[in-house]
Every structure is written in C-alpha cells, then in structure tokens.
Design a protein around this nucleic acid. Sequence first.
DNA 1: TTTACTGCAAAATGTTTGCATAAGG
DNA 2: CCTTATGCAAACATTTTGCAGTAAA
Lengths: 150, 150
Amino acid sequence: MQNLNRNDLRQRLTESGFKATHQRIVVLEAVTELHGHHPTAEEVYQKLNPANPTISLGTVYKTLDTFAEAELIKRVLTEEGGKRYDTCTTTHSHIYCSNTREIIDFEDPELENLLRDFFSKKQVNNFEIKSFAVQLTGKKVEPDKQISIK
Amino acid sequence: MQNLNRNDLRQRLTESGFKATHQRIVVLEAVTELHGHHPTAEEVYQKLNPANPTISLGTVYKTLDTFAEAELIKRVLTEEGGKRYDTCTTTHSHIYCSNTREIIDFEDPELENLLRDFFSKKQVNNFEIKSFAVQLTGKKVEPDKQISIK
DNA sequence: TTTACTGCAAAATGTTTGCATAAGG
DNA sequence: CCTTATGCAAACATTTTGCAGTAAA
C-alpha cells in the first residue's frame, strides 16, 4: 500500500504541476486505497462519496482522466469496454478471469526480468517501448483459495 | 489473411453450433477482412454496410458478442473503453501507441516460446491459464516507416 | 414447422461538454 | 486577482434490451 498521508498526496500533485485541490487529493487517495481493484470512475466516486458527498461524479471522471494523461495513475487494459484505473506501481502483469471478470495483479520478478532482458536486446521496429505487461486470461479453478487481491 | 470463401465461413459457423445466417456469415467475413485493425462494432458495421444495407447495427453488436463468447473471435484489450474485436489467430502481442492510439500486432515466435516455456513451468495460483499476450506501450519514433498493419 | 435469429426503436449505461461559480496559488 | 478547477445538467456515445416478424434447419 502506498502512502496515504494527505500532505504527501498534496506534494505529489504539486510536483506534477497540479493545483492541489481537495477534490484531487481525495481522488488520488481513493485510487490509491483501491489499488489492485482496478476501479472504474464510478467505483472511485462510491469510495470517496461518503466522506465527500459534495464531490461530483463528473469531477471524478475529469480528475481521473487528467491524472492518467499526466501519468500520475494509469489506465488498465480491459476487454470489456469501460475505463479502469490504477496507481502506477512497479511493472506487473494482470490475470483476467473469464468467469468472474476480475482483473487480478500478478507480480513475478522472474517474469519481469525475462521480459526486460528480451526487450532490451530486441529492437521493436520504430517503437520506443515505454512499458510492457503480460495479460493472462484464464479461469479460477479453486474458487475459495485464490490469489489475494491487494 | 484467412479464408474468405463463404462456404468455409458457413462451415465454421456450423461447427461452432450456429445457424449459418447471412448476417453471421457477413459479420465473420468483415471481421476477418479487418484482421489486424481491431475494429469496433461500428467499424464492422461500416465495412459490411455498403454491400448489406439491411443488416442493422444492433445485429452486428449481438453477433460480435455471440462470436466472442463462443471464442470464434476475441475481444482485444484496450485502455480506452469501447470494445474491439479481432479474429482468433496465433498467439501474438499488441503494441499500443500512445500518440496515435493505434493497436498494432506484434508477432514474435521467440517471445512466444519464451513465455510458453515460462508458464508451462510456473504454476499460477489456482488459475488455469488459457492464453497470454504481451502488451507493449510506447511511441512511434519514425512516423513514416512503421510496422505494417495487415 | 419449430426454433433461433434479426430489425427496430427505446432504454440503459458510460462518458464528455459548456458554462456559471468557486477556490488555489 | 487571475487563472484554473468544480458542480451541475445536458448532450453525446456506446451498448443492451424487448418484442414482433423472419428465416434457417
């Protein structure tokens, strides 16, 4: 879990050139708290709404979009349409469960090194690779004992 | 490019347990012809509309969804919201260009073998992995000389 | 002939926009 | 203060749904 101290959040906003408004602090806080859940704008809104009932859904949409554009957070790949967000963390992969439609983080340093090596050697035609991720699709086989989310 | 012979398309539909209606044949044909373009439902509709003006957009939506569910085609990962489709082909990766927002196919047998090996050895917790893909994000560096799309 | 599919139009969902007001630097 | 962000509501885009009619097997 990342830092949830509001002063630090404020600082991260300022460093990225944003006005540190209450709304932005709270949105960034909510996404951070939901890290690993790959929330939609609506879910971020639900998360922060109880404590911040005056912050509008529209602002959450705008703010998430602005943050993603500035790479303060990132958009998560999905095959379902609809935008999902997550905090930027270390490189990791996602497992998509076609049963439950969950997106589950899968961190594996060995895999990351393997890929980092591969792409450092291999030049991809005319592309400056900024990041990579492996997307696994599959099905849970033991519904109870599962990879822990967050 | 895959086979565009209508009898073959008809057969593939029948084999998947579908009634081989004209609409389905034409939708499957259009997606196949657009392979590598990762079209939206709207784009598939635009493709087939001139020759088939009576086929409705709603049918295209339903048909693509049905096909994806039956894994006759697949949904493509995107960070933009909105569903995109493609024919099922061999395992391959995608490069997403954050400038042009294109999704470009990247086939590399070496990379595929590397990953196939990795996942055959490695057991992923409680998951039956059905497929994997690498998603690269980056930027084109030479706008003119690019990876050819289809 | 029977069942499943299609077209249509309406509804639901998800996201963006414009503008007057409010707040941060 | 001046600029930029917010709230609100309306607009827009995308996708789904229900149902009567139609076509495939």
